[in-house]
Every structure is written in structure tokens, then in C-alpha cells.
Amino acid sequence: MVQSLDNLRETPSQTAGPYVHIGCMPTHAGNAGAFGTEIGKSPIADGAKGQIVTIRGQVIDGTGWALRDAMIESWQTDAAGRFPGQDDADPAVSGFARFAADGESGEFTLRTVKPGPIPARGGGFQAPHISLWVVARGVNVGLQTRIYFEDEDNSADPLLKRIEQRPRAETLIAKKTADGEYRFDIRLQGAGETVFLDL
């Protein structure tokens, strides 16, 4: 016999369900005013430094149908690659947003500032990216992924370089559709399946 480890196990996840908006985005659920201040309405305030970008997309299931009930959270740096709260971080960037697929079209929109290169552990930089966490009915454990940008230098990014099947790296790269506008669809399953992360 050996001593028993006294570490605790993580609480298991469960699906957020179809009514996640009641708790996280009351206005989207039809319950405006439930909280005085809803969190995550925008990751930036007026005056944020850098390029303001709008990213649109859908979360698409294995049949090609867009989810109408997904909720996404995003977390990112400011335009200089500093996380909120760090020294010299842009005070107009909270870095956190919550947005939902539209109940009719499934389209989501994230308006934010384009992040800067982000330090990697042990030196070097990660290419500019926005971290995403996707929850919905039918998703038992929230899915982590990232948005990169096609007009940035992604060649040295440590995470993108780890993707063995090179064509799959493309699923993490937002495509420019106009000045300051990008398209980023998230495919949960099947052809063109988005790379999801465990880190």
C-alpha cells in the first residue's frame, strides 16, 4: 500500500442547456433588467487603442445546421498583447465578452480590438489570437478554441505549429471580409471540423 493522494478531483461539467441565457445573458433570454449590470456585454470601452474589428460567424453542427442556442465567451489581450490588469495594460480593454448565436439565424457578432502578439511561456510570442469557450445544449463540456487572423504572421505560433494535419490549422484562422471585418465559423463536427483545445 501507499499513502493516498489528498488532491481533489475537478467537479464534472454538465451541458449549459438551452436556457443558459437566463443566468448568463438575461436580456437575450427576454429578461432585461434581471441584473443591474450584465457582464461581458463588450470587451472594450470607448477609446480602446488599436484596430477595432468585427468578427461574425456561426456555430455549425455535424449536419450543417447553425446552432440557435450557443453561447460563446471570449478572452484576449489589448492591442499591445497585455492582459487586463497587467502593468501598462489598456484600461479601456476588459478583454472579456459574452455573445450568443441569434435565436433565428444562428449568427454571432464580436466587436473588439485586435489583440497584439502575446508572450509565450519561456520566451517568444504567440501570434495574436482571441481565446473562445463555446457552450450549448448538447455540448457536455465547454469547447475551447482560438481565433487567429489571416492578415497576421501566424508562422511561428506554437499552438498552430502543433497541428499535425496542416489543413486543419486553417479552421482557427478568421478570414478577412472587409476592412476591419472577419468571418469565423465554428464547425463542431465533420468536414472542416474546428480544432478544439485541451490546455
Binding site: 446552432l67 484576449q76 508572450p119 511561456r121 448538447g138 486543419r168 463536427q189 480544432v195 483545445l197 485541451d198
Partner: peptide
């Protein structure tokens, strides 16, 4: 749990050590 059938990835997750992007938070 029927809704999970079309909403679960078929490919394995890409794993690596966490980075500052996951180690910080709101």
C-alpha cells in the same frame, strides 16, 4: 442524450501545456 450526437467533435482535442491566454482570466 440525443442533441450531443451532432454537437460533439469527432476529432481528438489538441492538447498542450496551458499558456498565459488560459492562465489569466476576467
Amino acid at each position: 442524450y440525443k442533441t450531443s450526437v451532432a454537437r460533439s467533435p469527432h476529432q481528438p482535442l489538441l492538447s498542450m501545456e496551458s499558456t498565459p491566454s488560459e492562465e489569466t482570466g476576467p
